[in-house]
């Protein structure tokens, strides 16, 4: 079942408006995405949709959950129907999609990470899978300016794209507990574990900084649209940096500015 317009009088399709797919996900949510054969376009469309929804806040909207190339829109089903909300979203997209490019003045974070046997149990695996050396893996991570696409579980920053020569697979057996601060990769994305918990992502280092602290307001300094660079630092730096809350100035690369 979808909420594509029913047969009958239809608005002429605007050529410059992205086609929006909206599928009911239960009685009080819609799964919304951009029609495209290209995964990059769908991901970019999903990011724009999310920003647009949070900006416009259609009647009845309760919350949104960003997926890789879609947005789950949760709504009050006593205030609005699937069809009405889908229509509002399509109208908002037709009216202003793409106009908010660069609207979010992103901040830039440099995040130090320490790489050793304990902190990077999957580095050798990742190197083997990509057919490059562990040093080259870390080189690609450090050289990539990563964009925070969304905040995943427990406000974890989901980042793309690491300039790897290929895709990194997930662990065959997900780990049941990974320490906070762990820097992890899968596909060509990177993420940092904010709190202890299970994950199937591959662990290639650990930052001594605290990236999320619920006693801070807001609990993270970063938000979607911000950019990140990782910097591999010597183990001797760990003690000096451990426990500091991540801010844009928590760690600066010498001579970078």
């Amino acid at each position: 079942m979808s909420t594509q317009p029913a047969p009958g009088p239809q608005l002429s399709q605007q050529s410059n408006a992205a086609a929006i797919k909206a599928v009911p996900f239960g009685d009080s949510a819609l799964m919304v995405s951009v029609f495209s054969d290209d995964s990059g376009e769908r991901q970019e469309g999903s990011r724009k949709l999310r920003e647009l929804l949070l900006d416009v806040r259609p009647q009845g909207l309760l919350d949104v959950v960003a997926g890789v190339d879609s947005v789950l829109v949760e709504f009050d089903n006593l205030a609005v129907s699937h069809g009405q909300l889908a229509q509002t979203i399509r109208l908002a997209v037709a009216g202003g999609f793409g106009d908010n490019d660069g609207a979010h003045a992103g901040m830039h974070f440099v995040i130090p990470m320490v790489v050793n046997q304990t902190f990077a149990p999957d580095l050798a695996d990742v190197a083997a899978e990509l057919g490059i050396s562990p040093e080259a893996v870390l080189g690609h991570v450090e050289d990539s300016v990563l964009n925070i696409n969304l905040l995943a579980s427990a406000m974890a920053p989901m980042m793309g794209r690491v300039q790897f020569p290929g895709q990194v697979s997930r662990c065959k057996e997900p780990r049941t507990n990974v320490d906070p601060g762990s820097v992890m990769v899968a596909g060509n994305n990177a993420i940092i574990q904010p709190f202890p918990g299970p994950t199937g992502w591959k662990v290639i280092g650990r930052t001594p900084l605290v990236i999320c602290d619920i006693r801070e307001n807001p609990p993270t300094s970063y938000s979607p649209g911000d950019t990140v660079r990782f910097k591999v630092v010597p183990e001797s730096e760990w003690e000096r940096l451990e426990g500091r809350f991540l801010r844009t100035d928590s760690y600066t690369i010498e001579g970078a500015h």
């Binding site: 959950v65 997926g67 789950l72």
Partner: peptide, 10 residues
């Protein structure tokens, strides 16, 4: 299936 948002009750 590409990872996507899931509502309560799924």
């Amino acid at each position: 299936i590409v990872s996507h948002g899931v509502p309560i009750g799924a």
